[in-house]
């Protein structure tokens, strides 16, 4: 009976050590991640950069291509996802206006042939 207690204890200790090693000491390292995993503030800042560039370039196809790294949602939806986050991220009113302008323009945007996602 005592022998099986040792076995059970060793088994449990093994599991515990394995989890400790796998989760804490040497967790799986993730590299080469896709932009969808970006933290919300980084994501919002990226979208703001796209809006800033769009203000000067006036190229909706290019803006849509830049936003497409966040997945297959419509560019307008991707751009608008930054709007609720903007105030808490410290975006200025003018930056929020840039974002809003990009969202509005993207709502009416149709991909040109071969240009957009």
């Amino acid at each position: 009976m005592k022998k099986w207690l040792w076995v059970l204890l060793a088994f449990a200790a093994g599991i515990g050590l394995g989890l400790l090693y796998g989760w804490v000491i040497s967790p799986v390292e993730f590299v080469d991640l896709s932009p969808e995993t970006l933290r919300a503030d980084f994501r919002a800042d990226y979208i703001l950069m796209v809006a800033e560039a769009y203000e000067t370039e006036h190229d909706l196809d290019l803006a849509a291509r830049r936003l497409a790294i966040f997945g297959s949602a419509s560019p307008a939806d991707i751009a608008s996802s930054a709007l609720p986050f903007g105030p808490s991220a410290g975006f200025t009113p003018s930056e929020l206006a840039l974002l809003d302008a990009l969202v509005q323009d993207l709502r009416g945007w149709q991909p040109s042939s071969g240009g957009a996602p």
Binding site: F11, G14, G16, G18, G22, W23, V28, L33, T37, L38
Partner: peptide
């Protein structure tokens, strides 16, 4: 038993339920 437990623990931590990366 210890080795088996260790293997199961590592398998769970690295394969079945690895640390999830969000907010990268």
């Amino acid at each position: 038993a210890l080795i088996l437990g260790l293997a199961l623990g590592l398998g769970y931590a690295w394969v079945l339920a690895p640390v999830e990366i969000v907010d990268s």
